[in-house]
Design a protein around this nucleic acid. Structure first.
Lengths: 156, 156
DNA sequence: CAACATTAATTGTATGTACATATATTTGCC
DNA sequence: GGCAAATATATGTACATACAATTAATGTTG
C-alpha cells in the first residue's frame, strides 16, 4: 500500500512532507518486523543492537559511553539495557581498573550463540531491500546522509 | 556525517544493510528534531499526530479505532494518548449514541490554537527536505512504498 | 430469545526513551 | 596536596510502546 492509503490521507502539504511521514512510518514498520523476529529469543531491538556492537568489537572490552555513541537510537539508556543483558548472562560488566568511573563490557559465549541464531532471520529482513539496485541504494543512503546534515545550515 | 561515521562502523554486510540502518537512524534523528520543537508546547509526537488527524477531519467526530488506523506509529496506544489530551482540554471524548462501545473524539478550540502555533516550527523541519528535487522526492517515496510491499511476497 | 461469537475500547505489566539530577572518580590548577 | 571542574555512569520520574487480558456492547444463530 502507498503511504496515502496506509494512513488514509489523500493529500499532503507537499511531496517533501509526504516523504517525512513516509520515513517515519516505514521506520516504525521496520522496527515491528525486527521485533517479531527477535521476540522468540527474548531480545529487543536496542538489546540486539548492543550485542551486535560487542560482537563487532571481537571480544574486546568496550566501555558504556562507546556503546552509546554507536547505537542506532542515540537516546538509548545503555546503562539499563546492559543491566538486562547481564541478568540474561549474554554480556558481562567489569569496572575498568585504570579508570574506575568507566565500566567495561563484553559479550559472553552465550551471547554470541544467541546472535548466531538470529543472523539468518535478521538477514531475511535485509533481503527485502534487494529489489533496489545497488546504485539506487547508494543514492538513497546519500540522500539520508545529506538530510541529516541540512540541519547544520538551518538550525545553527 | 555519513552513517558510517555516525555509528562508527566502517563496513556493512552490504549497501542494502547499510540502508536499513540508515533508515532507522535517520528516523530516530527526525523524531528527536520533532520532539525538540514540540516540547515547549507540552506535546509529544504521537499526541501531535492525533491532533493533526482530528484537525484534518474538520471538526467531525472520529472514533478511536479510526484514529489508530491513521497513526504514523501503528502500535500507539490511542486510548491512553487521548486520556492525556482530554486532561489538557485539547480534545473531547463522547460515547457514540448509536454504538455505545465506540467513543467519538473531536478537537477543541484550544487544541486548534496549539496546532496553529506549531505549524511554522514543524514546517521548518519539512524544509530540511527541500534540497531534494520533487522528482527525486517522489522516487524515494516510491521506494519506501515498494519496500513495505516486498513483505507480502516474502513472508506470506 | 438465549447462548455464543465478534467488536471497540480499556487496562495490566514489562520494556524502553527523554530529560534532569545524583554519585563517584579523575583531571587540572593554584 | 587540596579543591573546583570535568567526566562516566547510574537513577528518578514521566511518557510511550508491546502484547495480553478484560470489559462492555452489539451481532449472529440455533
Amino acid at each position: 500500500m502507498k503511504i496515502e492509503e496506509e494512513i488514509k490521507q489523500e493529500k499532503f502539504r507537499s511531496e517533501h512532507h509526504k516523504l517525512m511521514i513516509n520515513l517515519l512510518f516505514t521506520s516504525s514498520w521496520l522496527q515491528r518486523m525486527q521485533m517479531s523476529v527477535m521476540r522468540p529469543y527474548d531480545l529487543t531491538p536496542p538489546q540486539y543492537n548492543i550485542l551486535r556492537i560487542l560482537r563487532g568489537s571481537k571480544g574486546e572490552m568496550v566501555n558504556l559511553g562507546e556503546i552509546t555513541s554507536r547505537m542506532i537510537d542515540r537516546s538509548s539508556n545503555t546503562s539499563r539495557l546492559i543491566d538486562k543483558l547481564v541478568i540474561k548472562k549474554w554480556v558481562s560488566r567489569k569496572t575498568c581498573p585504570n579508570d574506575r568511573r568507566q565500566s567495561e563490557i563484553y559479550i559472553t559465549q552465550e551471547g554470541l550463540k544467541i546472535l548466531e541464531q538470529l543472523d539468518k532471520p535478521i538477514d531475511s529482513i535485509t533481503e527485502q531491500f534487494h529489489f533496489l539496485s545497488v546504485k539506487d541504494t547508494k543514492e538513497v543512503n546519500q540522500f539520508l546522509d545529506q538530510l541529516r546534515n541540512q540541519n547544520l545550515n538551518q538550525i545553527i
